[in-house]
Design a protein around this nucleic acid. Structure first.
Lengths: 214, 214
DNA sequence: GATAATTTGGACCGGTCGTCTGCTAGCGGA
DNA sequence: TCCGCTAGCAGACGACCGGTCCAAATTATC
């Protein structure tokens, strides 16, 4: 038998087993996943690692076995979030079933539902960390900006498709519009957290799409 | 003489009389002013009292003489900022020399210059604290939302003036537009801090005013 | 049994908020 | 005059928390 797949062969790891029964090998994964949840709520600086450790049921001493530092943990969380979000974005923006512009609109609706599911406590991780950029370890700012540029690129592509379909004026600058979209959207998300309601998201969506050049 | 009113009869308390001279208020004032600077950079939670104390040259022990708690300090700072910003807003939005829409545009230009003056390290205090809303003492969120509503109201009035002048379509919903403006603007400010440059602010302004219904 | 791999409890150190105590300045009363 | 009282202020302290590190504990593999 060639290389065995991950789920068929149990690795039978050596070493001291976890005290609390946990899916072996993905303690690190669980920490990152929990980190995404907590950091989208509280940001990076004011979040203690004890908090996420306790939530996952991992002892404090174990942390530095999985990550070099809090900074490294933050980076891992951010990467995970970026990947997760890029997938989500593609799922909507590449949907061949609906028109390009409608895809973007549906993305905002889905995100709005997502915020409601978490009672508007969680925001956008990139937005949250962006606010803390002056306090973050060096290089974080650039990574955040790169992620936003990536999202912008995807939206810009979608807008160009809309142009080809005649949904959007041909002379519109899709890059600028995409940047404009994300600024407004991040602002709307922030505001939705503040009022603990969907209204800002709905209002933004309404106004943005209404004012798009035909 | 019947019950004397509080301000006519002086109790003639013993002991050293309250100073009430400038010195007392000056120190408090200096703390608040410095607080505005620091909190617009770092937010509330992750800012230490000691930091602002050191910057003003006030000993640690004196802080709780001027403020009941860190929370009370935060409230004072926020009030000061709101008042300052409302004045600034009025200065631009009520300027009779230029057309209403141009007033709003000039405000954004002025704010852009302001961010440049501080090397894009300082953002909007309301935006910053809004991001931390889940970690802030109770009631902060409502105060922040109230301040934003106040700003929105002022912008909405300005937009209505623009309508009267024919700069804006009569059927435009000024309240919605004002809310839309502030969401986008806060997002742009946040982004400008991230990239440490004026481009997001310029781009937002451009797009927003370009897409206003005529 | 030796070794390597993995997990863990707890110690360390620095920083934070808030308090406690005490000093000084100036006025009232004896 | 001078003692005591009160208001303004300052330094030290305490309790706590957060990030980091390490040595011990526990198991699989050789």
């Amino acid at each position: 038998m060639p290389i065995s797949t991950a789920h068929t062969n149990i690795p039978k790891r050596r070493g001291r087993p976890p005290k609390t029964a946990r899916d072996n090998l993905d303690t690190r994964d669980a920490l990152i996943r929990c980190g995404v949840e907590v950091l989208t709520e509280q940001g990076f600086v004011s979040t203690g690692i004890d908090g996420v450790l306790r939530r996952v049921g991992v002892p404090k001493g174990s942390f530095y076995h999985y990550f070099d530092s809090k900074e490294a943990f933050g980076r891992a969380v951010l990467e995970r979030y970026a990947a997760y979000f890029a997938r989500k974005l593609d799922r909507w923006l590449l949907d061949p079933e609906v028109s390009p512009l409608e895809r973007l609109r549906r993305f905002t609706q889905d995100a709005r539902d997502g915020m409601a599911r978490h009672d508007y406590r969680r925001g956008c991780l990139v937005g949250n960390l962006g606010q803390e950029v002056t306090l973050l370890p060096a290089g974080f700012g650039e990574q955040l900006e790169a992620i936003l540029q990536d999202w912008q690129r995807r939206v810009a592509v979608c807008l160009k498709l809309a142009q080809a379909r005649g949904e959007l004026a041909i002379d519109a600058n899709c890059e600028s519009l995409a940047a404009y979209f994300w600024m407004g959207w991040e602002g709307a998300v922030q505001r939705a957290r503040l009022v603990k309601g969907p209204e800002p998201l709905t209002l933004f969506s309404q106004e943005f799409f209404d004012r798009l050049p035909r």
